[in-house]
C-alpha cells in the first residue's frame, strides 16, 4: 500500500516580519477628532439648538404614541401592500401574456417616472377629483355609490400613495430576483409537467428570495424616511408632522424638534439594519461554496479519523 502523508512532519517557523507603518492614518484620525470636538463644542454651546427643549420633547408622549406609531404603521402597511403589488407586477412583466406585460410596463413607467411627493399630492386631491364613486353598469343604472369627500381618509390615501409608488420599485427588485434564477430550473419544472404558475410559486420565487431580500431591506428603511413626505396628502400625524409642524410651531423652536425627529428615525433605522443583517445571512444559506464553521469542523473531524490522502487506513 502506498502511504502518502500530506502533512509535513516539521513545519517551517512562522514568519515574524516588521509590520508596515501607516503614519497618514494617524494624521487623518487626529484631524478628524479635532474637527468633531470643535463641532460638538459648538453645538453644545449654541443657543439655537435649545437642548433643553430637545430633552423635554425627546420622550414626549405625543411624539411617541402618535407620531412614531403612525410613522411605523405607515411604513408597515404601505410596504406590505407594495410587496404584494410588486410581486404581481413583476410576474405580469415576465409572463408570456403580452397584455399583462404592457400593463405592467405602463404602470412602472408612470409610477417610477413621477416624484413621490407629486403622487402624494395627487392622492390627497383624489376626493376633489372624484367626489362620488358609484358602482354600476356603465352608462346604465347605478347599484351603489358613496361620497369620497364625506369621508376623512388622509391616512388611507397616504398609505395608498406610498404603496403604489413603492410597488414600482419592488416590482423591479422582484423581477431582478426572478431573472437571477437559472433557466434550467423552470425548464426542469416544465418538463415535470408543472404549469407556469406552479413553476413560479414552487420553484422560481423561493429561489429568487436570496436576491430579493437585501434590497427589500433597503426599501423598508427608505420607506420609513419617505413617510415624512405624507404631509403632502396632507396627513400630519406622523413623526415629522407631530414634531416639526405641531410642536415646533407651538414652541417656536424648529431646530430642537427636528433633532427629536431625526433621533427617532435613526433609532428605528438602526433596529431595521440589525434585522436586515440577520435576514440576509439567513437567505444566503447554501449560496456560497464557502463552508460554514459547522461543516469545516465536521470535515476536520473526518480528516482526523478517516481516509483522505490515503494515509489513514493502514494505521
Amino acid at each position: 500500500m502506498t502511504d502518502v502523508d500530506t502533512s509535513p512532519s516539521t513545519s517551517p517557523a512562522a514568519i515574524d516580519a516588521v509590520p508596515l507603518r501607516h503614519p497618514w492614518r494617524w494624521v487623518a484620525a487626529v484631524v478628524i477628532v479635532i474637527l468633531v470636538v470643535l463641532f460638538v463644542y459648538g453645538a453644545a454651546t449654541n443657543e439655537a439648538y435649545r437642548w433643553d427643549v430637545f430633552a423635554e420633547y425627546l420622550f414626549n408622549e405625543r411624539v411617541l404614541t402618535v407620531g412614531l406609531v403612525n410613522t411605523l404603521q405607515l411604513t408597515l402597511y404601505s410596504m406590505v401592500l407594495a410587496i404584494l403589488l410588486g410581486v404581481l407586477l413583476a410576474v405580469m412583466r415576465l409572463s408570456p401574456n403580452p397584455v399583462f406585460k404592457a400593463v405592467s410596463w405602463v404602470y412602472l413607467w408612470i409610477f417610477r417616472g413621477t416624484p413621490v411627493y407629486v403622487q402624494l399630492v395627487f392622492w390627497g386631491l383624489l376626493p376633489t377629483i372624484y367626489a362620488n364613486i358609484q358602482l354600476g353598469v356603465p352608462f346604465g343604472p347605478s347599484l351603489f355609490q358613496f361620497n369620497l369627500q364625506a369621508l376623512s381618509i388622509p391616512f388611507l390615501l397616504a398609505i395608498v400613495g406610498l404603496a403604489l409608488n413603492e410597488s414600482a420599485y419592488m416590482a423591479e427588485i422582484i423581477r431582478a430576483g426572478i431573472s437571477s434564477v437559472p433557466e434550467g430550473q423552470s425548464e426542469a419544472s416544465t418538463a415535470l409537467g408543472m404549469s407556469w404558475g406552479m413553476t413560479m410559486r414552487r420553484t422560481v420565487l423561493p429561489q429568487a428570495m436570496r436576491v430579493i431580500i437585501p434590497p427589500t431591506g433597503n426599501e423598508v428603511i427608505s420607506m420609513l424616511k419617505t413617510t415624512s413626505l405624507v404631509t403632502a396628502v396632507p396627513f400630519t400625524l406622523d413623526l415629522f408632522g407631530i414634531t416639526s409642524r405641531e410642536i415646533a410651531a407651538r414652541e417656536f423652536a424648529p431646530v430642537p424638534l427636528l433633532m427629536v425627529a431625526a433621533f427617532w428615525y435613526l433609532v428605528v433605522t438602526s433596529i431595521l439594519m440589525v434585522g436586515q443583517f440577520y435576514l440576509e445571512r439567513y437567505y444566503s444559506r447554501g449560496a456560497s461554496r464557502k463552508l460554514t464553521t459547522k461543516q469545516l469542523e465536521a470535515l476536520a473531524k473526518a480528516q482526523g479519523t478517516g481516509a483522505p490522502g490515503g494515509g489513514g487506513e493502514g494505521a
Binding site: P182, G184, Q185, E187, A188, T190, A191, L192, G193, T203, Q207, G286
Partner: peptide, 15 residues
C-alpha cells in the same frame, strides 16, 4: 409532459 421524463446535462435539481 407528465408521461415523459427528462434528465438534463446540468441536473437542474431544485437547490
Amino acid at each position: 409532459r407528465r408521461d415523459i421524463g427528462m434528465v438534463f446535462q446540468h441536473f437542474n435539481l431544485f437547490p
